[in-house]
Design a binder for these strands. Structure first.
Length: 605
DNA sequence: CCACCAGAGCTC
DNA sequence: AGCTCTGGTGGC
């Protein structure tokens, strides 16, 4: 009697076992019964039935085999298996984000070419690092690197950059290359089928392109490898850069890690060094203690607007260039506090401190997105005096509007992503004679399209990240990017307003990333933080489950930390993933479905 | 009488 | 988390 182990997408980690009359080759898709319904899974292996092991549940037969050949070419399947283990998400969850829905949702057959024979030339793969602030310089090197390569993947943190790089390729190369779509749907399906079946030379795209089913891969480039864009923000939580590195190793492909700044892990492993630093006159630090205290309606805190900010803004505007003011707080105020009892207004769903959106007369929870109307009184003490703290973009906007000259607009961009191409053109056209743009870090991408002569980080200390340990690097790399990004970086001035101007991580801005990482890594080594260990963020499904998980980890002689604040979260630091996976595996068995599955994020650097 | 929807129940 | 089955509601 034969059985198949099938990977069926879902939050569980284990493969599911089904009976089969005849052996099914690994990598083929099969339709299988699950619960009351039917699902599609990928065969991991066919083996003899092990009566003891399979006795705990009744085996059901496979409903049908959907493919003639393995659906994933080359070593891609191994990548999914590895990623599922490394990021504690299970192969199935990774499959879900890696494949178009046409493959996993519909039993329609997908036409597939047979796998390629192993005609791969076993060149010795290289691992190269390339760090330079000049994008043109890096891109030129990419073209050199791809010379003579027969199957390549080039990854960019943003789709727009990918499109630009692809568009700049020599026509002959572009014709044998595909621009990987950034979103799912029909376009992804089409691209997937083309790449899977046609003899293409390469794929260029955003992070998702790492999963392109190229049959032969001999080179992978990761641009801006330290960018946070390579981390997925919904389940499963994985680092695409790491997967790209693994894919290169699996396929024996050469790997080029590149960017303006290396990530901590790459810095450490590559023993990198750099003397690149900004010109003295292009970076300024200003203390907000001496700030001009602009009073803003309904806001208790004064907005940090320094004299340096006003003078540089004025200079830039009068030269007809555009000014960018950046602040990572949307809305009118980052917090609403009661003057009587001092407590902040919190989200009723998740307990986080809410943001005040004055324009729409409501509050928004920054962590769960819950919207509510602005409260009349303090929910804690019923006091009537609610004031905003930590002014946000909406509150500063009137100040910016007062500074622009005739014919220069002041724009408030809440959400650059939602604006699309047409809006982008409107923005760039409107700013042909300069103006002020206010936005969050996402607005930095405007450097690619606008002549930006001055960038101000209004509150460089603000760290609104969920994981505090890497907040310094996030801020550092964004500020670093703002110095160099785009064709208008020459002569640009960047201003950092903060409480401790020029100290701490800001020294690295003046001295370069080698100095930054040296300092930062000595602190992290001390605290056993990534890249010196892995950090696991485990979110239990219920309080009971949390207790069980804690007990299981402690039983395996690990030291989980219970921060107490987000109530269901557990933190764990470990030098290896394996024992953590073993301790957590019981909670990810399909048999536990009814109790709900925990969520896990693995921080590697 | 059936179309539609929310909630329950199940998962190798 | 999906997915389907169920039973109530309401439109005609």
């Amino acid at each position: 009697m034969l059985c198949c182990e099938v990977v069926v997408p879902g939050p569980w980690w284990n493969g599911l076992t089904y009976s089969t009359d005849s052996p099914v080759a690994p990598g083929l898709r099969v339709a299988v019964p699950l619960g009351r319904g039917e699902r599609i899974g990928i065969v991991r292996e066919t083996r003899d039935l092990n009566e003891d092991k399979e006795a705990q549940f009744t085996l059901r037969p496979i409903k049908g085999v959907l493919d003639e050949y393995p659906i994933f070419p080359g070593r891609l399947w191994e990548l999914f298996e590895w990623g599922g283990r490394a990021f504690l998400c299970g192969t199935g969850e990774l499959l879900r984000i890696a494949s178009p829905s046409s493959i996993l949702d519909s039993t329609e057959p997908v036409s597939l070419m047979p796998p390629m024979d192993d005609l791969q030339v076993a060149l010795t793969p290289e691992e190269l690092f390339l760090y330079s602030c000049r994008q043109e310089e890096r891109w030129l090197k990419y073209t050199d690197f791809l010379e003579g390569k027969r199957g390549f993947i080039v990854l960019f943190p943003e789709q727009e950059l990918a499109r630009k790089f692809w568009g700049d390729l020599p026509k002959a190369v572009r014709n044998e290359t595909i621009l990987w779509p950034s979103q799912g749907g029909k376009r992804l399906s089409a691209a997937w089928n083309t790449v899977r079946n046609e003899p293409l030379r390469g794929v260029v795209g955003g992070p998702g392109a790492v999963f392109a089913p190229l049959r032969y891969v001999d080179a992978i480039i990761v641009d801006e490898e330290s960018s946070g864009a390579y981390r997925t923000y919904t389940k499963p939580l994985v680092n695409i850069r790491t997967l790209a590195g693994k894919r290169a190793r699996l396929e024996s492909a050469s790997l080029l890690l590149s960017g303006r700044v290396p990530s901590s892990r790459v810095f450490l492993r590559g023993r990198l060094n750099s003397s690149e630093r900004p010109k003295r006159e292009s970076i300024r630090f200003a203390g907000i203690k001496e700030a001009f205290a602009a009073s803003l309606r309904g806001i208790g805190d004064s907005m940090p607007l320094t004299s340096a900010l006003f003078s540089e803004t004025g200079l830039c505007l009068s030269s007809g260039r555009t000014v960018l003011w950046l602040l990572d707080r949307k809305g009118y105020a980052g917090e609403i506090a009661c003057e009587d009892c001092g407590s902040a207004v919190r989200c009723r769903k998740c307990g986080a401190s809410v943001v005040w959106e004055e324009k729409r007369g409501r509050t928004r929870c920054p962590s769960c997105g819950e919207l509510r109307s602005m409260p009349e009184e303090c929910p804690a003490c019923r006091g009537r005096l609610l004031t905003g703290k930590r002014p946000g973009l909406e509150a500063v906007f009137p100040v910016a509007r007062g500074l622009v000259n005739e014919g220069q607009p002041a724009l408030l961009l809440d959400d650059l992503k939602a604006t699309g191409k047409r809006r982008l053109r409107e923005i760039t056209d409107g700013l042909s004679r300069g103006g002020i743009v206010l936005g969050t870090r996402a607005a930095l991408s405007l450097c690619d399209n606008l002549d930006i002569g001055f960038i101000a980080w209004l509150d460089a200390d603000a760290e609104v990240r969920s994981v505090a340990y890497q907040a310094k690097f996030t801020v550092f790399s964004m500020v670093w990017e703002s110095i160099w990004r785009g064709g208008s970086a020459d002569g640009r001035v960047v201003l950092l307003q903060s409480r401790r101007p020029g100290s701490g991580w800001q020294r690295g801005v003046a001295q370069g990333w080698s100095a930054f990482w040296k300092q930062e890594l000595s602190e992290r080594r001390e605290l056993e933080l990534p890249p010196f260990s892995y950090l696991f963020e485990i979110k239990a499904h219920s309080a009971e489950q949390k207790a069980e998980i804690l007990a299981s980890l402690e039983g395996a002689r690990m030291n989980p930390m219970d921060p107490g604040d987000p109530p269901l979260v557990i933190w764990l630091s470990a030098t290896s993933v394996v024992p953590v996976r073993e301790a957590l595996a019981p909670f990810f068995s399909i048999a536990r479905s009814r109790r709900g599955f925990p969520g896990i994020c693995v921080w590697i650097d």
